Simulated scan of single mutants.
Amino acid sequence: MTLTLGVCASGADALRSSAPSGLPASTNALSPPAAACTNASRLAGWSNFRLAMTTIAVPASETAPGQVSTEVSQGAGGVLLFGSQAPANLGSLLATLRSHVPGHLGLLVMTDEEGGGVQRMANLVGSLPWAHTMGATWSAAQIQQAVHNVAVKMAAAGVDMDLAPVADVDGRAVVPSATNPDGLRSFGGNTSVVARDTVAYMNGLRSGGVIPVIKHFPGLGDASYNTDFGPAHTLAWSTEQTVGLPPFKAAIAAGAPAIMTSNASVPGLSTNPGSISPTLITYELKGKLGFHGLILTDSLTAKAISAAGWSVSGAAVQALRSGADMILFGPVTNTQAETTAIASRIVSATNSGQLSRARLIDAAGAVLAVRHVNLCT
């Protein structure tokens, strides 16, 4: 609905009758102006459940994305595709899924298409080498062009967001493992090279019609462990600021639309996993670095989250309170039940005041903004 300020009919008649002779009533200085319509003013009219669902990206198999049509019809803001061999008819499957979106306001369909061993749909869009290989042997222009070519095909297949590039600075040229989350996923151990190539990869995605997500803030290079498998910490914050942050700063300066946080703690800054740390997200990323795009969590089903004592739904509330806008979680036994639990926990937290409604509206607004959705048109 369009929110406007006005007066009742009898009051308006009274104002018109008192207007100076010869002047149209519309010029009367006493007439209150109409309030400008904004996404925030429209979202203020949404239920807490609808707002909560907008902040959630639900996991789905790329071979059967229709399995989450119920969640999408309830307003889920995104779908995260998993798999290794995308079906030839993925585009039509996703078009059908999008037909379930309430109000046809758009749906973020995302996947991990990084290159090397982390590619979900290379059979449809073409293959990229490991980021480490690109960083060591390709120019920035070559990276941008190759990624652009892949992105065009991703967009044609209905995938409009890529959880890439990895902006972590890590010189360990090994296959990622439980003890090393990056390795070959990183453009290398030189901060300047990683910053350059992160921006090139990001620009290739954008020019091809896909929204890039820069990860994993503030940098997982040389992290103590892989957060998917257990607790981990980054380098000390004093080191992280000079080694890990520059690629993220470069991406922000170049117009990065979205950033994913890591689930590692940061010695000297925060003992909480990054995705649920207000110090990391609100104070550093939003405050000091001035980032105002979409902020996504890393997977809240990661062992680093549960090891810190959080359920997925509890961590989701804490992530939103900390400044994150979109909740990600990995494949679970019952996606619908998990999604309902997360949304219900967010609604309950909002109703009780644990999570401010203004923060929830802001998060939902960030999800719509990255898709350029205008609720006032």
Rank of each mutant, 00 (worst) to 15 (best):
T2C: 08
T2L: 08
A9E: 14
A12Q: 07
A12G: 12
A14S: 15
A14W: 13
S17Q: 15
S17H: 07
A19E: 11
A19R: 09
G22P: 00
A25I: 10
T27K: 03
A34R: 08
C37N: 10
T38L: 06
T38D: 01
R42F: 09
G45C: 05
W46M: 13
N48F: 14
A57E: 12
V58H: 07
S61M: 09
S61G: 04
T63M: 00
P65H: 00
V72F: 01
S73K: 05
G77E: 07
G77A: 01
A86E: 01
A86L: 07
P87H: 12
A88Q: 01
A88K: 09
H104K: 03
L105G: 11
L105V: 11
D112N: 02
E114S: 08
E114V: 06
G115H: 02
G116A: 03
N123K: 01
T137S: 14
S139L: 08
S139W: 13
A140F: 12
N149Y: 10
N149D: 15
V150W: 12
A151V: 06
A151L: 02
V152K: 12
M154S: 06
A155V: 04
A156V: 10
A157I: 12
D160K: 03
L163G: 05
P165V: 13
P165S: 12
V166I: 08
V166A: 03
A167N: 02
D168N: 02
A173L: 08
A173S: 04
P176H: 09
S177T: 06
T179M: 02
T179W: 05
N180Y: 05
N180M: 06
L184H: 12
G188Q: 06
S192K: 15
V193L: 10
V193G: 12
A200L: 09
G204L: 04
S207T: 14
V210Y: 07
G219E: 08
L220R: 01
Y225M: 13
N226P: 07
T227K: 01
F229V: 01
G230S: 14
H233C: 14
T234W: 08
T234H: 06
A236L: 13
W237A: 10
Q241S: 07
Q241E: 14
V243E: 12
A254P: 02
P257C: 11
A258G: 04
I259L: 03
M260G: 03
S265P: 12
S265D: 11
V266Q: 02
G268W: 15
S270G: 10
T271F: 15
S277L: 03
I281R: 03
Y283F: 15
Y283M: 13
L285N: 04
L285H: 05
L296G: 05
S299V: 00
L300Q: 03
T301H: 02
K303C: 04
I305T: 04
I305S: 09
S311V: 07
G314M: 08
A315S: 09
R321F: 12
R321W: 13
D325C: 05
M326S: 11
L328G: 10
N334Y: 00
T335L: 00
T335Q: 06
I346L: 03
S348C: 11
T350E: 01
N351K: 12
S352L: 10
Q354C: 08
L355G: 13
S356G: 01
R359H: 00
V367C: 11
L368I: 06
L368Y: 12
L368N: 07
V370P: 09
R371L: 13
H372E: 14
